[in-house]
């Protein structure tokens, strides 16, 4: 028990936290664009965002592996001009996780934005405010539960990721050996007690995170119903 390597767990949470933060930055504008676009390409955009939901993670990981590989044009370009090595590296894991968890961030926020009355944005525009100002001051503050859901689902989903990490990250301790990989590794070498600890920690944490979100959302809904806070 004492000689257990805690690094995979630490790495898992670091990966999930960084991925979630970057996904907020990319996911919110993307959700806003998709929610409000009148373009004919909207179904295509929605499909692309949703692909990681249905695609086996190994497929995604396989293509990312090919793309990031220095033998390929894109990977070569990355390594040569940006000095970025994405295969079997933490940075590569972050990018893979972002693509993999993108729908979990974009979908709740997109749905939240689409459920808002469209004239909130129109009223804000007519009051002289830019779309960006309207988004940050009116639209986003009114979909806080949706944003919370997106953040938590992305975080939890990144914790649970296995296939993509295995394909592009491999199993390098301290770099890409996250908890889900470590469990597989320990089971392979019949070290069940270590696997139990990793699995137990992930189980309890995932349960707690989701429970907290649902409790918060319920409390929020109750407060809204009693007129104490805004929706």
């Amino acid at each position: 028990m004492t000689d257990l390597d805690w690094q995979p767990l630490w790495l898992t949470f670091k990966l999930a936290a960084i991925t979630t933060c970057l996904l907020i930055v990319c996911g919110v504008p993307l959700a806003y664009k998709i929610a409000l676009t009148k373009s004919k390409l909207k179904p295509v955009m929605e499909t692309l965002v949703s692909m990681p939901l249905v695609l086996p993670p190994s497929v995604l990981g396989f293509y990312l592996l090919l793309a990031f590989s220095p033998q390929q044009a894109f990977g070569h370009w990355l390594e040569h001009y940006l000095h970025l090595k994405l295969v079997f590296s933490f940075a590569g894991l972050v990018i893979g996780s972002m693509i993999f968890s993108l729908p979990f961030m974009v979908h709740p926020i997109q749905a939240g934005l689409q459920n808002l009355p469209s004239n909130l944005l129109e009223a804000s525009r007519a009051l002289g405010k830019s779309d960006w100002y309207s988004l940050t001051h009116i639209l986003l503050p009114n979909i806080k539960p949706a944003i919370l859901t997106g953040v938590v689902l992305s975080f939890a989903h990144t914790i649970g990721e296995f296939g993509v990490v295995l394909m592009i990250g491999g199993n390098i301790p301290g770099v890409s050996k996250v908890a889900s990989i470590a469990i597989y590794d320990e089971v392979e070498s019949l070290n069940y007690s270590a696997a139990h600890v990793y699995a137990g920690v992930l189980f309890v944490l995932s349960f707690s995170i989701l429970l907290i979100v649902y409790l918060l959302n319920r409390r929020h809904a109750n407060l809204v119903r009693s007129g104490m806070v805004s929706p």
């Binding site: 009223a123 804000s124 525009r125 830019s130 009116i138 009114n142 805004s230």
Partner: peptide, 20 residues
């Protein structure tokens, strides 16, 4: 753009900002 036109508009369902 709507932002460049200086006018006040009242919508049928008010469109008040719920968070303010």
């Amino acid at each position: 753009t709507p932002q460049q036109r200086s006018l006040g508009i009242v919508f049928q369902d008010y469109a008040l900002f719920p968070n303010l």
